[in-house]
Design a protein around this nucleic acid. Structure first.
Length: 581
RNA sequence: GCUUCCAUAGUUCAAUGGAUAGAACGACUCCCUUCUAAGGAGUAGAUCUAGGUUCGAUUCCUAGUGGGAGUACCA
């Protein structure tokens, strides 16, 4: 094998195979048909089944109709050509089933690959494209809910993911600090609020007032009117209302920041909806002047019938603006201020229609040419699968979740490591709990809803963060007991080492999957399989006591890369891993 | 009503149109006088229904059933 080919093979055997299969298949087609085929859309897969090889391809099925032969016959022809190109020292090739070609990497091949293993590093780009990522977006005067927690963790992880693949992420927190809800809160605050009680625990007391308002409003409809009036007063700059509002905003942000610090989340911009207030009226006038918007039933709308969507409501009949209006202005503002290459909105799936409307309005009005995407995620519902309601007060707060998991984690600490000081236990328990919370929010498909239940969502065993943390600590423990030497002999590695090696070289491929789907669960799944492979090696070979020093060195190298891959992968999920457990 | 998302072991989740549908939890067997048993090895157990497209369907299309969300003055 030529040096360049050997290097490609060692670093990326799949890519190496792909190139050869492609040329060989192309040749076969051109030899027998007049029409050259431009693209061959075939796959190379890793099935993880021993008899199917390390890689398998469906190329014969793709070529068969073009050659008007059976897939099996094509596979046989391809096999002959492939054997000419690929040395049997590196790959053993077989035909299986109705025409699959299976490739088995030889021990000699694995030795080359294992020797070249290296830890993941951020991809380099000369021009770091900016990507603006909006996430978290909590509402003032309400505790951060578990839904916002999911948004925060998902957005944060996406930030790390994009940074890894070479983007420059700009994080944006769009705070819900404006709207009719504040009228309601102002009414409740003035009527039933007690400032000394509120001072002690502002957010929870305000939440109680908000719930109280809705209870009272069910009996007395005039309260809703009062609320609208209070919000109008706030919009017009009423001093008393402004003062109460500022106080609430300040207290809420303090609470949110505490959670962000705990999770290690950093925002480049934290901008409330109120910020756009002064831009709203000029914008609405512009809409009217250009006849983009018109009056309907007393309100101002942008019709979207042509798009097959309900109209976008931009001004209420009482003259107040709406969420949609502020989102349009915010979109413009972000586009102009940051000039990113792309914008992401990490917002719950219940707002799919809202973003469809925003896309359509942008298409019709040409607000910005910068593409934006709604990265939606499934709702966390109550145990009956129904939406939690802030108004009724039956929400699960982010704090409740984190505290409960720290508690559970601490109990396990006491059980497993009773000798540790309570301070160490507390510290470890907190680190693990945060990892558990983040990992749990990322390990399943982001679009699927989650029915709330502590035991199933935040499981502490099985495919969970503690398993990854444990595996990492195990490797670190071994590495601390054995000297690191570069003179490794990779030829006597066994099947479990090969499995681990195969997993390690798949890291970047998994990252690509994550990036194209804007999901993190493939990475979480991957880390679990990686840890699994590590633990198998751990069981099968007693590394420290291995008398074959050179083979031991080879394993130490693979394990070092494994530990670093686990830590790096977790850091993309936003999780910090501990050296000891 | 309309729009849209979803339906996979007892439970929670995987599976770029591929071969024998993977895990985890729970249940049942085994393995600590060798590197952290928060571990490892094993057994039992699943694609909502009916059509269609395809060499090949959990995946795509149509219809049905069941559930979530959205659906003009909340955000």
């Amino acid at each position: 094998m030529k040096p360049e080919a050997l290097r490609l093979f060692s670093q990326n055997p799949e890519k190496y195979l792909y190139t050869i299969i492609y040329t060989v298949a192309q040749k076969l087609i051109q030899d027998t048909t007049l029409n050259a085929v431009s693209a061959l859309n075939f796959d190379i897969e890793t099935k993880g089944i021993a008899t199917f090889g390390d890689y398998s391809t469906n190329i014969a099925f793709i070529c068969a109709p073009l050659l008007k032969k059976s897939p099996l016959a094509v596979a046989q022809e391809l096999l002959i050509l492939l054997r000419e190109q690929i040395s049997s020292d590196f790959f053993h090739i077989e035909i299986a089933g109705t025409g699959f070609l299976n490739f088995f990497i030889t021990p000699h091949g694995w030795a080359h690959i294992a020797r070249k293993l290296s830890s993941p590093r951020p991809r380099k780009r000369f021009f770091r494209k900016k990507i603006l990522i909006e996430f978290s977006s909590p509402n003032i005067a309400k505790p951060m809910s578990i839904g916002h927690l999911r948004a925060t963790i998902l957005g944060n992880a996406l930030t790390h993911l994009y940074r890894h693949i070479g983007y420059r992420p700009i994080t944006w927190n769009h705070i819900g600090d404006w709207g009719t809800q504040f009228g309601k809160l102002l009414v409740a605050y003035k009527k039933w609020g007690n400032s000394t009680i509120i001072e002690k625990d502002p957010i929870n007391e305000l939440q109680k007032l908000y719930v109280l308002f809705h209870q009272k409003a069910e009996q007395d409809i005039s309260l809703e009117d009062e609320a609208r009036k209070e919000f109008q007063k706030l919009e017009l700059g009423d001093i008393k209302n402004r003062r109460v509002w500022s106080y609430i905003v300040k207290q809420s942000l303090k609470e949110f920041n505490r959670m962000y610090r705990l999770l290690g989340v950093v925002f480049n911009y934290t901008i409330g909806e109120s910020f756009y207030e002064s831009r709203l009226q000029p914008f609405i006038q512009w809409l009217q002047k250009n006849k983009y918007a018109h009056e309907s039933q007393g309100a101002l709308i942008i019709p979207l019938e042509a798009e097959g969507l309900p109209p976008a409501l931009i001004q209420k009949s009482d003259g107040a603006t709406l969420y949609f209006t502020r989102d349009m202005v915010s979109l413009l503002y972000r586009a102009h201020k940051i000039k990113p290459h792309h914008m992401l909105y990490v917002v719950g799936g219940e707002q799919i229609l809202h973003f469809k409307q925003l896309q359509s309005v942008n298409k019709l009005l040409h607000l910005t040419t910068i593409p934006f995407t709604h990265v939606s995620f499934g709702m966390i519902t109550d145990e009956f699968g129904k939406k939690f309601s802030t108004r009724k007060g039956n929400i699960v707060t982010a704090d409740t979740v984190v505290e409960e998991i720290i508690d559970r984690s601490y109990k396990i600490q006491e059980e497993k490591n009773p000798h540790q000081s309570s301070e160490t236990k507390k510290k470890t328990a907190t680190a693990i709990a945060l990892g558990v919370v983040m990992h749990s929010m990322l390990r399943s498909d982001r679009t699927s809803g989650i029915s709330f239940d502590f035991d199933t969502i935040f499981s502490l065993s099985g495919n969970s963060f503690p398993y990854l943390q444990y595996t990492y600590a195990r490797i670190i423990s071994i590495l601390s007991k054995v000297p690191h030497k570069k003179t490794g002999d990779y030829t006597k590695l066994t099947e479990s080492d090969h499995t681990l090696t195969r997993t390690l070289i798949n890291f970047e491929k998994i990252i690509d999957t994550c990036a194209t789907t804007q999901s993190l669960h493939p990475l979480a799944e991957y880390l679990f399989s990686l840890a699994n492979a590590v633990n198998t090696v751990y069981e099968k070979s007693h590394i420290i006591h291995d008398t074959d020093i050179r083979t031991r060195n080879a394993r130490i190298h693979i394990l070092t890369v494994s530990a670093e891959t686990i830590a790096y992968g977790l850091s993309i999920l936003g999780i910090t891993v501990q050296k000891k457990l």
